[in-house]
């Protein structure tokens, strides 16, 4: 079994329900996110549109975070999930430096690395991840990539524009997008201008650590 995620961006409306469900389910501390939805505005007024891209750990088959972790705190479990043992983590931030998707953060409460685990604890109880349950438009498709009859496999078969983020990194992500453009997937395809963020004055805790 290899569990994977697919987000149909045609359906996503940026409600952030998944983000909040994840926060609540996993008790994610303030200023940190296991899953977040990126907004990118495209075009020039009045011809503008807003795109939404949920971003989470890609649970790579060839995970750089797992490889660089000095104590195997980040490890694979049998269903393909890259899980984290927070009791073992030494907080070296090697995984933060290695993850090309910026999906790992240092939990300010435990001072250990943390990230999306595809809600491994829920899956162990035969439940869907919290973000899948919360999505009002079923934009999150979750299932077994090894099973050709699973929802996710059929979705991949039926759609020709299935993409992953940063395929050139050779990480083989188990997280796919349908209906994505470069603006959604490539951080260099959009500008980040001071003063143009919806939360300009957002308060950030010093997550970079103690120095």
């Amino acid at each position: 079994m290899q569990l994977g995620f697919l987000v149909d961006l045609h359906l996503c409306m940026g409600c952030k329900g998944c983000e909040i469900a994840c926060k609540v389910e996993n008790e994610v501390p303030l200023s940190t996110w296991r899953l977040r939805v990126k907004y990118v505005d495209v075009g020039t007024y009045p011809e503008t549109k807003r795109t939404f891209t949920p971003l989470r750990c890609n649970h790579c088959e060839n995970a750089p975070c797992e490889r660089i972790c000095p104590v195997s705190a980040l490890h694979y479990i049998e269903n393909g999930i890259v899980n984290i043992d927070k009791e073992r983590c030494i907080g070296c931030a090697g995984c933060v430096m290695a993850c090309p998707y910026g999906a790992i953060y240092i939990d300010p409460e435990t001072q250990t690395a943390d990230k999306c685990t595809y809600c491994a604890h829920r899956i162990a109880s035969s439940m869907m991840p919290a973000c899948v349950v919360a999505c009002p438009v079923e934009a999150n498709i979750f299932g077994d990539l090894d099973d050709p009859t699973s929802n996710i496999s059929r979705y991949i078969q039926d759609n020709r524009d299935v993409q992953v983020r940063k395929p050139e990194k050779g990480t083989n992500p188990h997280h796919y997008y349908v209906g994505a453009s470069q603006v959604n997937l490539n951080p260099l395809a959009s500008e980040r201008e001071e003063g143009y963020n919806l939360f300009n004055n957002i308060t950030k805790l010093p997550l970079g650590g103690h120095h």
């Binding site: 990118v40 931030a93 395809a189 959009s190 500008e191 963020n197």
Partner: peptide
């Protein structure tokens, strides 16, 4: 190359709470 498309798309990130801060600083 994608940044060449910026002039055409005028794509601007309006909300992304990406991980802030430098993690490996002067200690390293």
């Amino acid at each position: 190359m994608v940044h060449e498309t910026l002039a055409a798309t005028n794509a601007v990130v309006t909300l992304d709470v990406a991980i802030p801060d430098v993690f490996w600083g002067w200690y390293v």
